Simulated assay, not measured.
Amino acid sequence: MKLEWIKSSYSTSSGPDCVEVAIPDDESHVLVRDSKNPDGPRLALTPTTWASFLPYAAAH
């Protein structure tokens, strides 16, 4: 299964990289990875956990 990784809107072509997220076809979880290390470790979060995390991340 090929994943479509989406880079954070805070990342720019002239600035630092950030994180990327992907949602598998079955939508069972949200994958998060460091965009500077695309072959490195990934977090797999439930959609509920991801939704709880987003307001925190936006505030910081």
Rank of each mutant, 00 (worst) to 15 (best):
M1G: 15
M1L: 11
L3T: 05
E4W: 01
E4Y: 07
E4D: 12
W5Y: 04
I6P: 00
I6W: 00
I6T: 13
I6V: 08
K7A: 13
K7W: 01
K7Y: 01
K7S: 11
S8K: 11
S8G: 09
S8I: 07
S8A: 07
S9E: 06
S9R: 13
S9F: 01
S9K: 11
S9V: 13
Y10Q: 07
Y10D: 00
S11R: 01
S11L: 07
S11I: 11
T12H: 00
T12E: 04
T12D: 02
S14T: 14
S14A: 14
G15V: 07
G15N: 10
P16W: 00
P16Q: 02
P16F: 02
D17R: 12
D17N: 14
D17Q: 14
D17I: 03
D17K: 13
C18P: 00
C18M: 08
C18D: 09
V19A: 10
V19R: 04
V19K: 04
V19I: 15
E20V: 06
E20I: 04
E20R: 05
V21W: 02
V21I: 15
V21N: 02
V21R: 02
V21K: 02
A22V: 01
I23H: 03
I23G: 05
P24L: 09
P24W: 02
P24S: 11
D25S: 06
D25K: 05
D26Y: 00
D26C: 00
D26M: 02
E27F: 02
E27R: 01
S28R: 01
S28C: 03
S28Q: 06
H29G: 05
H29Q: 12
H29W: 03
H29C: 13
V30I: 15
V30D: 08
V30N: 06
V30P: 10
V30G: 08
L31H: 11
V32P: 07
V32G: 07
R33C: 10
D34L: 11
D34T: 12
D34R: 12
D34K: 11
D34A: 12
S35L: 11
S35V: 12
K36P: 05
K36N: 13
K36I: 02
N37K: 15
N37E: 12
N37R: 15
N37P: 00
P38V: 05
P38N: 14
D39L: 14
D39N: 15
D39C: 04
G40H: 11
G40Q: 06
P41N: 10
P41Q: 13
P41Y: 06
R42V: 14
L43T: 07
L43H: 05
L43E: 07
A44T: 03
L45Y: 02
L45A: 10
L45T: 05
T46H: 01
T46A: 14
T46N: 06
T46W: 02
P47L: 08
T48V: 10
T48L: 06
T48W: 00
T48K: 05
T49Y: 04
T49R: 10
T49H: 08
W50H: 04
W50E: 02
W50N: 04
A51R: 15
A51M: 09
F53C: 09
F53Y: 08
F53Q: 08
L54H: 03
L54A: 06
L54M: 13
L54F: 02
L54Y: 02
L54D: 00
P55E: 04
P55T: 14
P55L: 12
P55G: 08
P55V: 13
P55F: 08
Y56V: 15
Y56K: 11
Y56E: 03
Y56F: 14
Y56G: 13
A57F: 09
A59S: 15
A59W: 03
